[in-house]
Simulated scan of single mutants.
Amino acid sequence: MPHPRSTDDTADDRFAPHGRVSLQAVGQVLETEASGPFNVELIKALAHLIAAVVPPLAARGPWGQCVVFHRSVMASPDTLAAFAQLLQDTARQGLGPAVTAYVIDPGIEGATLMPRHFARCFAEAGLAFEIFQQAEPARGWLRERLAGT
């Protein structure tokens, strides 16, 4: 299995990314680990990472993403705006996920505040999205949804 790629590999701004995201394709699922809080620079680094990782995955057909969050899911309004734009751009290019599952443990920072903001970002991009508290139900939901595409 190839080594996961992360936003640590792509940062090039004057300000360092806050947070970390690592991606690894497993079949048609992009397994993602994310640890916040997040800033705009992290979203810029994520855009570079997605540009490198997603096209080969999307070329094989519909794909899904399972994002497991750690520590915090907090993001400022400008970070959410940058994330929403990234999702819209990716969807417009035909590189968006068919379905995305976020796994947010209720005990991490922002678990009650941020889900509605994430849901809005995905809705604005026209992308299917659901939030779970545990990874296995999220992965099962992804498998079911991908099987139907």
Rank of each mutant, 00 (worst) to 15 (best):
L46F: 15
L46H: 08
D78V: 15
P4T: 06
L30T: 14
G94V: 08
T90C: 02
A45I: 04
G94T: 13
F15M: 09
R139D: 05
M74H: 05
V103A: 01
D8M: 12
A82F: 08
F69C: 03
Q28L: 15
R139T: 11
A11T: 06
P137D: 05
A45H: 03
E33K: 09
Y102E: 15
Q133Y: 12
T32Y: 03
P2K: 11
A91D: 05
F118G: 06
S6V: 00
A45Q: 05
H117N: 15
E41C: 04
G94M: 08
P55C: 15
G96V: 06
Q134F: 06
M1P: 12
K44M: 07
R143S: 00
T10G: 01
G110H: 00
E130D: 12
E130F: 04
L142I: 15
R139V: 10
T112A: 06
A52D: 12
F15H: 15
F132L: 03
G148A: 13
E136P: 06
Q133C: 03
V73K: 07
F132M: 10
R143T: 15
P56N: 05
D8C: 02
T79G: 12
V73Y: 07
T149S: 09
Q88M: 07
R120L: 05
A81Q: 11
A81N: 09
C121M: 04
P37G: 04
G19F: 06
G126S: 01
V73D: 04
D13P: 10
V21M: 01
R5V: 11
R92P: 13
R5E: 02
F38G: 00
E109S: 01
R14L: 13
L86P: 03
S22T: 05
P77I: 01
A16H: 06
A123R: 07
S22R: 08
R116T: 12
I131F: 08
Q88V: 09
T100A: 14
A123T: 01
G140R: 14
V21F: 00
H70P: 00
P4K: 08
A25M: 02
G19K: 00
Q93R: 10
F83H: 03
F122W: 05
L86K: 06
F118M: 11
H117V: 08
Y102D: 11
A52V: 13
P56K: 07
A52H: 14
V103W: 02
V103N: 07
A119E: 02
P17V: 04
A51P: 01
P115M: 01
K44D: 04
T90R: 08
I104D: 09
A101M: 13
I131N: 10
R20D: 00
